[in-house]
Design a protein around this nucleic acid. Structure first.
Lengths: 252, 252
DNA sequence: TATTATTTGTTCGTATGTATT
DNA sequence: TAATACATACGAACAAATAAT
């Protein structure tokens, strides 16, 4: 077999054409995905099969696959195969950001889970954001929010312990963070600012969001304040970028 | 040589320890970078040298390097070497977003360049955002903004041709987009909304921003409106995520 | 439940091409 | 021009996760 005999029309790779073979394969598969080329279940052929089809080594296919996974077009699962990913949803960011309200408007189910709750000392970053003294006691709450059974956000938030005594127990009894805050007299709170960035995730964040480490995450660092403008929460929320887009509506 | 004789204390990799060797190397180098372990010029040893140090194949070092580059910790330059990357800057996003004002407040120089200007027909996405009919004529302006000589944003914007007749020539004569809009009577405009996401860049975007394709970019899709609320611009701006963070300040 | 086949993940080795110094 | 350093690609082997038998 000389070359590419099995390739579908218009999908042959070309060597020494200035553009790397694995990039050509990425491009071809990307186009086929966009054209719904892999049926309803969206399962791609195995790496070995694709290697035969394009008449290249499996490594070369793998490079293309890693890229497609990073772009969010497919998800790769060891022992199972490679699957086309569905589209993403909008997450509204504004003065009044509440997770559940946010998603129910878009016909998605939602659920929040507290992963851990610890009392620690504020490091300089946390202290500055909360306008308290470095080393003052804070509660660190780790949480995750799901939509339609899929993890959407993973967050670490810090609350000043002086104001919210025994916060973890209150969250437990009240059945949620917003409800718990109400018990301390915080009936309403608003977002002061949000700082947004994007990185490839650490292994911990990747695990929490159940994505692979080739897939970018957006992080949103923010401070919530009460009605009088006093900071009540500082935190960082991570979003799986293939599942969510952040929507900022200016004005009010 | 049995194993890791050249490794610095506490930096030996361990095989068959559940965690892949390349991940261990990534972790070690990441820690050394954070500790300013590579001097003022921030140049890492060559891949071959690192391979010897960790007593692994060069491929294994490369995997770690690709990850570090993707994380934005280092930049890899073919034929030169691998270098530690400096920190990032804040880009303010709000009702009144102007690039130059934005950065001058942070002691950075700034410059904008128009890369291309064409008259085309609006596709459905553009048409909907601008509240015009699909197929109506629009100007598509490609531009880039630099800060301190480094590309920060790459943007594609669309303006309705009916309202802004001969826009490219006006931009040329007025010496800038904001100035050109003023000549059409648009003395002030504001941002209506911004949709933010993150992906690994296409080759074109990577080239425009002069980053490699392992490095995530944030994209911001947005619509500007004039004083009467009529859309005057729809566009997508790409940011190199290792150089910028987006700052949203929610109204006072 | 245990075994086997399938599929992706990691690592080594080797060779060659391309960009920079 | 030569040396150095990164980029791409092939081949082989085994590990780990999953699915089917």
């Amino acid at each position: 077999m000389t070359s590419n005999e099995n390739a579908a029309p218009g999908t042959a790779v070309e060597r020494g054409a200035g553009v790397a073979v694995w990039r050509q394969i990425e491009q071809i598969l990307s186009a086929e995905i966009a054209a719904h080329g892999f049926g309803d279940e969206g399962r791609l052929p195995s790496e070995a099969e694709l290697a035969r089809r394009f008449d290249v080594n499996r490594h070369t296919v793998r490079r293309a696959m890693l890229r497609l996974a990073a772009t969010g077009l497919v998800s790769v699962e060891q022992g199972r195969g490679t699957f086309v990913q569905p589209g993403a949803i909008d997450y509204r960011i504004g003065k009044r950001t509440r997770f559940t309200e946010n998603l129910q408007q878009q016909h998605h189910t939602s659920a929040g889970v507290v992963l851990s709750a610890d009392k620690t000392k504020a490091d300089p970053t946390v202290a500055k954001a909360l306008s308290i003294r470095t080393g003052a006691l804070v509660y660190q709450i780790e949480s995750r929010h799901d939509s339609d059974g899929v993890p959407i956000t993973y967050a670490r938030n810090w609350y000043p312990a002086a104001r919210f005594a025994d916060l973890p127990a209150t969250i437990e009894s009240a059945g949620g963070i917003t409800a718990a805050l109400a018990e301390y007299g915080v009936v309403d709170y608003t977002r002061k600012w949000s700082r947004i960035g994007s990185v490839l995730p650490s292994s911990e964040v990747a695990r929490r969001l159940q994505i692979n480490r080739q897939q970018p995450v957006m992080w949103v660092e923010n401070v919530d304040v009460d009605e009088t403008g006093v900071p009540i929460k500082y935190g960082i929320t991570h979003f799986a970028a293939d599942r969510v887009q952040l929507m900022v509506e200016h004005d009010a």
